[in-house]
Design a protein around this nucleic acid. Structure first.
Lengths: 113, 113
DNA sequence: CATATATGTAACTTTTAGGTTACGAATATA
DNA sequence: TATATTCGTAACCTAAAAGTTACATATATG
């Protein structure tokens, strides 16, 4: 199973991978345990894990023949940065709207003259 | 071109669609104008626009034969909610770490007795 | 009215993500 | 040492996203 190199957006596009991330908010689990909680085969889950790791969403620590997976912040940060960019857009848009509103209220209420 | 119904994660997984969203932070544009800024054919862009709209990332206002696209907050909010969930995870993890550190420093420094 | 422009959509092809089974390597255990 | 367990990977198949071209429709414009 060749593991394609996907960016963070493509990585979280898959529902199974998002579900794995959800699982890992509870605890660290080895790969077989994670696979037991999915309908698909173990190699399929193994591939998802590999993809999650290379995109920086999880880290893996080897303990004997087992490999324990934990969440890693890196991938999430990259996503958050993208979202934040658009958040800034909305905020500046709101600000523009407010200043337009202020101007209008001034014009519609010319107290002097 | 059948437009598949994709969730917000799948929608932003495509680089071209993210690029379109970036464009729309500058201004509103009609579909042909957007298409001119891409290598791919106009119908391909048209399909991306349709996907972005049905996922709540953009709104479209008809003006005669033209259709102007603007950013819509809905899709972004859905994404942000997902990220926020994991942000809460990191914060609580940090908190746990802090309390562990506090306990340790207490134990390693038994001032009384 | 005739023509140009903006757009949607149907039909089709190609690429690839995501799944499978089969196998091998490394480690734990009896 | 023999066996069971954990995991990775190669080879392969399938479904669907993402692109294309061709065509139809609606609106603007001369």
């Amino acid at each position: 199973m060749a593991t394609p190199n996907l960016d963070v957006f493509q990585v979280i596009a898959d529902p199974s991978r998002r579900q794995i991330l959800q699982m890992l908010t509870k605890d660290s689990y080895n790969i077989n345990y994670i696979a037991e909680n999915f309908e698909m085969s173990r190699p399929a889950v193994s591939k998802h894990i590999s993809i999650l790791q290379s995109a920086g969403f999880i880290t893996i620590s080897d303990q004997g023949r087992e490999r324990y997976c934990s969440l890693s912040q890196d991938g999430f940060i990259e996503l958050r940065n993208w979202i934040d960019y658009f958040d800034a857009f909305w905020r500046s848009k709101l600000k523009t709207l407010e200043s337009v509103m202020n101007k209008k209220s001034k014009n519609s209420n010319p107290s002097k003259k």
